[in-house]
């Protein structure tokens, strides 16, 4: 496995957290991984992204030029990264926040109204978890949804276990969305 993904959106959407969640998954299934945030002076509400690599082999460059996967949660980020995605790659797109379609026919695009789904579950903050579920669905069988549930539970302090359950509920909603 050598999966390079960029997760991008506005600051505050939990973009870095989705990356961390998937990085933990990679670690827990025994893979090598790296997680690299964009850092620097940013405008409040500006764009934010992180690069996650999950690999069987030792990871060289932690910087991703051409991702296999783009998980994208706002329009400016889609515009920034859409052309960089490898031919044959995957784009998971929050269609409740991005009204445009991807103008490429050499990539698989998964449109999912993640924020809307999260709102329907009573937590508009967790659109990021819906995206994670949708991503796993698209990447089966290299990842398994049960491994992700386990991983999410394993890395939340016991005192906050109800948060893990809420996260899992939203991951499941994303996973089951057609």
């Amino acid at each position: 496995m050598f999966e390079q993904m960029i997760i991008a959106g506005f600051g505050g959407q939990g973009v870095l957290f989705v990356g961390k969640t998937l990085a933990y998954l990679g670690m827990d299934i025994g893979k090598n991984l790296s997680w690299l945030p964009s850092y620097g002076p940013e405008m409040r509400g500006g764009t934010c992204n992180c690069s996650v690599i999950i690999s069987d082999d030792k990871i060289g460059s932690p910087i991703i030029t051409n991702p296999d996967t783009l998980i994208v949660m706002n329009k400016p980020s889609l515009e920034k990264f859409v052309d960089a995605v490898k031919s044959g790659g995957l784009i998971v797109l929050d269609s409740s926040l991005i009204d445009s379609k991807v103008q490429r026919d050499d990539v698989t695009v998964k449109y999912i109204p993640a924020m809307e789904i999260a709102e329907n579950h009573g937590n508009s903050q967790l659109g990021n978890m819906v995206m994670a579920g949708a991503y796993i669905k698209a990447r089966e069988p290299i990842f398994s949804i049960d491994d992700l549930y386990e991983s999410v539970k394993a890395h939340i302090p016991p005192a906050k276990m109800q948060l893990a359950e809420k996260n899992i509920e939203l991951i499941k909603a994303g996973y089951e969305y057609n």
Binding site: M27, L33, S34, W35, L36, P37, P62
Partner: peptide
């Protein structure tokens, strides 16, 4: 460098 300081790895 900033890359190494900011990146997460196991």
């Amino acid at each position: 460098d900033g890359m190494l300081g900011q990146m997460m790895e196991p």
